[in-house]
Every structure is written in C-alpha cells, then in structure tokens.
Design a protein around this nucleic acid. Sequence first.
DNA 1: ATTTTTATTGTACATTCGTACAAATAAAAA
DNA 2: TTTTTATTTGTACGAATGTACAATAAAAAT
Lengths: 254, 254
Amino acid sequence: MTDDVDRMSDEITLETAFGATPPTPARASARKPGRPKGRSSGETRERILDAAERIFADEGYDGTALRDVAQAAGVQLHAVGYHFGPKDVLFDTVISRRSVIMTELRMKALRAARRAAAGDAIPIERLVRDYISPFVLSAGEGDNGWRAYAALMGRLANSPLGTEIIARHYDATAQEYLTEFRRALPGVPEADVIEGFSAMVAAMLGLCADTGRPARLSDTEGPRRKTAESLETLVRFQTAGFLALRTAQGSGTS
Amino acid sequence: MTDDVDRMSDEITLETAFGATPPTPARASARKPGRPKGRSSGETRERILDAAERIFADEGYDGTALRDVAQAAGVQLHAVGYHFGPKDVLFDTVISRRSVIMTELRMKALRAARRAAAGDAIPIERLVRDYISPFVLSAGEGDNGWRAYAALMGRLANSPLGTEIIARHYDATAQEYLTEFRRALPGVPEADVIEGFSAMVAAMLGLCADTGRPARLSDTEGPRRKTAESLETLVRFQTAGFLALRTAQGSGTS
DNA sequence: ATTTTTATTGTACATTCGTACAAATAAAAA
DNA sequence: TTTTTATTTGTACGAATGTACAATAAAAAT
C-alpha cells in the first residue's frame, strides 16, 4: 500500500494545479449535428465536467438534472450521456478529476516531511498543515472550479453516497497520514487519533464549503477574511487539539 | 435578543428528551377510508415525522420521495400532504420538532453556567461541553429518531438548503454561546472565535453523522466506541483548540 | 476516393415525483 | 337525530428526469 502511493511522480505543484480549467463560456448551442471542426473532444468533456461540478455543488447529486448540466456546458443533453454514461459515472468523474491532483499534492508534501524528519516522528503541526493546506488553498485561492469542488466535497462529507466516494478517492492518502499521526502521538489510543483526524477533516471541509454562516454569526461586519489567515487559525486550532490528546491517555477521564 | 431566549422554561431534561417518540411500527395500510377510531391524529403526524426523519437522513431532501415516507409511516400518500402541506414544510417540521428540544437543553445548560460563573467568564471547557453534549448524547444514547436526526443535521451541514434551515433554527442559540466564547477569549480576534466555533460544530456533526469512516480508517478492529468516551475526546480536543487561539493574537504569524 | 469511426444534434419514451381532486367514514357538534 | 367537520383512502395529472434511438457530419483510416 505504501509502495502504491510512493510511486507517484512529483510533477504537480500548487501553481500548475490552480487554474488548470479554462473559464466556462456556456454559450448557447447553435451548431449543426456532426463532428465539430476545431474542438478536440476533450475540450467538450472538460466543459461538461466544469458545469457538472458547479451544479452538483449547488444542488447536490439528486438535485442536479443532466439537462441543466448540458445547458450550462453549452451542449446537447445526449452529449453528456455519450461522454460519461450514467449519472453516477459523471459524478464520480467529477470527483476523481481533482482528487488525483489533491492526492498528489498531499503525498508530495508527506514525502518531503518524511525526508525532513529523517526517521523521527513528523511534528503534528506539519502533518496538520500538509494535509489541510492543499485543500484550503485550492478552495480559497484557486479558480471557481476549485471553489465548487471544495463546496461539493463539504456537501458530500456526511452523506452515505459521499462517504462511499470519499472512501474510494481519499482513504488511501488518509491512511498514509494516519500512520504518521500515530507515530507522532505515541500512547494515544487509536480511537482518539481517528477521532481527532475526523474532527480536523470536518473542520477543513466546513471552512471551505463557504456557506456564509461565519459571516452571519459574526458580530462585526467586514471584508472577507484572507485565506492564509483562516488557514493559520485552523492549523493552530487543530494542532492544539491533537496535542491535547496526549495529556489524558487511556480511556477518557471525565 | 438575549431576553428572547432567557424567557424559556426549564422543563426539558435529557431524560425526558430521549425516547420521546415511540418506535415506528410501519405496518401496511389495510384500513377503510374515513376518520379512524382510536387514533388521535397527532399520532399519525408523529409517525409521518418519524418516517420522514429517517428517510430524509438516508436519502437527502431531493432523494426522498413522499411516497416512500407515506409507505414507511403506514399511511396513504395524501395523508402526508394533508397534515404538512408541501414537501419543504414537512422537512422544516422534521427539523424543528427536535431543534426546540435541543435549543432548550443548550440554553438551560448555558443559564446554569452563567449562574455558576457569577459574572465572570465561563470556562472554555464548560462552554464546549455544554454546547456539544446535548447533541452528542442524543445521537449516541437516544433512540433511533435522535440518531436519524443527528445524521440528517450532519448531512445538511454544508449545503445551501441546510445552511438556511440551520440559521433559522440554531443561530440564535449559537449567538448566545458565542457571546460567552468572546468573553472567555479576550483579545482573540472575532474571526478566530467564529472559525473555532465553526470547527467545533463541524466536528460535532461529523462525529454524530456516523458515516462509518472512523471504523474504516482505524487499523484496529473492535466494538463500537462508547458515546461518553467520544464526547470526552471531542471536548478535550476542541477546548485545546480554542485555548490555542489565545497564544498568537492579532493576525496570524508565520 | 471510399469506408469507418467519432462526436454531436434532435426527438422520444417510460418512470417517477409533487400536488390535487373526489369519495368515504368516523367523530364531534348542534 | 341531523349536520358539520376532521381524517383518511384511492385515483389522477402535469411536469421533470434519466436513458435510449435515429440522423448527421466532420475526421480518420484504408
């Protein structure tokens, strides 16, 4: 299992990862049937995926009509089915398109952290930061596609369908990080490590889903907070949480 | 605004709150039309709400068919519309039925904490515990209805519809707690307090949604963890997170 | 130059869903 | 006892949805 992820290349960076998808024009369809001239087929696929990503994020899986996806992508309804088959396959493709990038970023950071630790345990703060920051920065500083993807992941978080999909695309990386969390938290019960990791992921997704609740709960109005600041707060909060698990080991002493 | 919630009564306790709804029989419909003999109308309403709660939690709002709700409740399709009107009203009724109980429990605990503090700031751990424990204990030790409700709330967490509904039913209580969090965290920027509170809520919902991911991520098999233990871990983790916000005040360093 | 493959349009269909309507019957009121 | 009201059944309908079926034309292959 470790071999599997370690074999990945180091080509993807934060810079190349962002802005990978062009802005969707969503123009009306006024073309005759038949294979189009210039377009390279993959371009249509990307446009459909972009539209699907946004609508899935806004409306959810069941709330999304393939007709709306087709219209937003500027293609005919059947083009969606032609390229992706059934609805669930389209959905899974939307998820996996960016999950491979996210996994690459996280595993790259983990490899670097392992090298830096040189056999010792990786510091908790670094583990938290390396796992969280690719997602938070993508959602906060990436293009609209990344923003929609982050919102979609947040919406999926606690649903049965989402759990199944997240397991398929993200559990392997989570396991890699958990191995290091366990090393960095010797003596802490397994259940506590898992619960801390789950709390961290939940907070990360909640932050990036960007529901507007923070702004509504705040008593001071103001411009939107900078992503880097939110990230630092989140890292500090979650790191302290993990470290607190060391103090009262064994079963919880209330 | 403070007056509004302080006027609530103290009648609901954890004991009376749990097991308030009877187990749903879900028997098949083999009755003639007309007003039934014994049933007190409110009983049918509760059965429909119980069924709707479970199916909404499993399938989501758009994934839920009123026909399935009716069948699970053992009533005819139109009985649903007769009692609750449109689908969104039924949904809102499902949410509010238990949100009033949850709000009551939380506000009761907050009033007690305020009395105990006698004008001073309430300790962070107590704020965390008082906000979290009613929900965690309901989801973990309550009946199936509470379990379904908790899963439903988790599923709603990061969706637009869910955000709107949560705002309507839970923001007032959240504001009350936030006032105390601010007092207990003097000097901490407002944005950090809000972010910490959001992280706490996200972790709480993720824990109670009970998606099975923790069990899948764990490397040691075993029986399900006791609710009280999970709660203690969550309280310790989140409390430490809040306290860490005090250390590096102002805008995030590093 | 001809044939095959690929990508797209336009239409159609069976199913499902939310909502509405009419009828029926027991309880409550007069 | 008669009338009214409340609650439930059974059926129906229009709209929306996922999927499938031809038709067409450009590109690629032979």
